[in-house]
């Protein structure tokens, strides 16, 4: 029990302190095939990853037409949605993902001053 406690504490402290720059990111982007919003979202997230997370991220793109069950499992309601699975805590960003500031904020990657 003690372990779980300290893990939670650590998670909280991270939440407060912001994300250290060496953390590994696991991201999933849910899209609807080739809609303009989907392609924009993908382009924007890919750009952020390449700029800020180079060498330490995994990005999966899931088409809900092809894998609807995955969306259900991940409790996706509307698409496009970006899910940050790691680092904790899990976060979902829904809707317009072409706004880079919004995505950066959602991923705890506030712009460097």
């Amino acid at each position: 029990m003690k372990n779980t406690d300290s893990d939670t504490t650590a998670a909280f402290e991270k939440l407060v302190a912001g994300t250290p720059s060496d953390e590994h990111y696991v991201l999933r982007l849910y899209v609807t095939g080739m809609s303009p919003r989907s392609t924009e979202a993908f382009a924007s997230i890919k750009a952020i990853c390449d700029e800020r997370l180079q060498g330490r991220y995994e990005l999966e793109v899931i088409d809900i037409y092809q894998h609807p069950q995955l969306a259900i499992d991940e409790q996706i309601i509307a698409v496009p949605t970006l899910v940050k699975k790691l680092p904790a805590p899990l976060r979902r960003l829904v809707g317009d993902l072409s706004n880079q500031d919004r995505v950066l904020l959602g991923l705890d990657l506030r712009r460097k001053p």
Binding site: T32, R37, P68, A71, I77, A78, P80, V94, G95, D96
Partner: peptide
């Protein structure tokens, strides 16, 4: 999520139905 749906910033909804998912 609600904001995004209201502002029309989404493409589709995923709904759970008895025999799986529907988009």
């Amino acid at each position: 999520t609600i904001r995004a749906i209201r502002s029309g910033a989404v493409d589709a909804f995923v709904v759970e139905v008895p025999n799986g998912a529907r988009v």
